[in-house]
Amino acid sequence: MNLTKEHILTLLEEVKDPEIPVLSLVDLGVITGVDISEENHVTVNMTPTFAGCPAMDYMKKDVERTLEKYGISKYTVNMSFDKPWDSNKLSERGRQHLKEFGLAPPPKYDLILDLDILEHVRCPYCDSEDTTLRTPFGPTLCRSMHYCNNCRQMFEQFKPL
């Protein structure tokens, strides 16, 4: 069988962020490239969301496990900063899944981060924009904490980066 890049990406849809199990690594945007050599050797390139994210090692192993599960024995999974991740790389589908999970998706922005961007977050529960940033540091490196003045609930946002 000749493997294709599309086929590999479909398989990798199965691999989820261990801390946000509704979000696939493909939708998260951390799979930066898939190459298949003439000898059917599969190379998957990945990049971390945050350099200190302890889940990245787990995600890399999960990619390897998934390839093996589908009978792909010749593979290399690389983790590098060659194509650095930013939160604009989250797909539309990924953003929708985050919202359904109760995590406000990061706003698309021009990659110039200021407090204004952090302070105006839409509540994932009631869609109100009347929310307050409580702290830019949440339970994991990729989340900030906010309070909704409308539905009076704390909620988390996947941080813009």
Binding site: F50, A51, F81, L113, D114, L115, L118, P136, F137, L161
Partner: peptide, 13 residues
């Protein structure tokens, strides 16, 4: 390039 985005949060804090 990657790390300057992360440390921005430290500076804001």
């Amino acid at each position: 390039t990657k790390l300057k985005g992360e440390v921005k949060y430290h500076v804001l804090h």
